[in-house]
Amino acid sequence: MPDKPAQPDAARLAVRKTYKLYVGGAFPRSESGRSYQVRAAKGGELLAFAAQASRKDARDAVEAARAAFGAWSSATAYNRGQVLYRAAEMIEGRAGQFAGEILAAEGMSMTAARRTVAAAIDRLVWYAGWPDKVAQVAGGANQVAGPYFNFSVPEPTGVVAVIAPAESSLLGLVSVVAPVIATGNAAVVVASEERPLPAITLSEVLATCDLPGGVVNMLTGRTGELAAVLAGHFDVNAIDITGAAAGSRAELARLAAANVKRVFLGEDDWAETPTPRRMLAFTETKTVWHPVGS
């Protein structure tokens, strides 16, 4: 007897999901206990509940990122590349789930969703090749008028807050997070407010791909509420405001100026092959003088 294709069981109730945050390598609930409804782009069907992070969750995420920064920034570039590549492998393994989530979140066709997942995997692989090459591109040996070797090397900035793009929930997210962590920064990411499910699944991927806990912290909730806290936080060294609403960017930049954070804004076409500029935006150039031996 030929197998029949599996039919969804009409009598079975769907498992309602309430997702949590990803902070310090763990999945805590929001300290505030709040959650919000995530609905499909087409039809407005309830997809799941997501945790609605509070300012204290943002603070905890920054603490976790700061704690993780030391080990991650001093890991070898080769190791960082391997970890990113491993993350790409694991997205590949869950491609079906990601495609389903993008389809529901962004209201595109299944073909387009699959193509987007493939692009996100390729994007991660692209950045996975960079950690041990970025110093050759952004640094170098400088000519100086004296008996010295003079080197410039890019070093990670520190804790970087990333406001992920609101529209492109996976490809855009990967495109803004990967360049930050590739060079050794630790990231606090605010996921797309309306479309957080791919970001949550990406957290699950990152939690199991050898990325040390705290290097990426994923917050879901009201972007306006969280972005302001992160922009004003004195232990955050840089902020990517690409995903913030256009009207709020000036205020975020003003808050960020209090401790002279680096502020980056780059609305890229996520489908295009990127350039290294997002990586270089979150590095500091260190220049070393060394006497020439005779």
Binding site: H233, F234, D235
Partner: peptide, 8 residues
Amino acid sequence: GRYQGQDY
């Protein structure tokens, strides 16, 4: 009203 950094 702002969270402080340890660098300070």
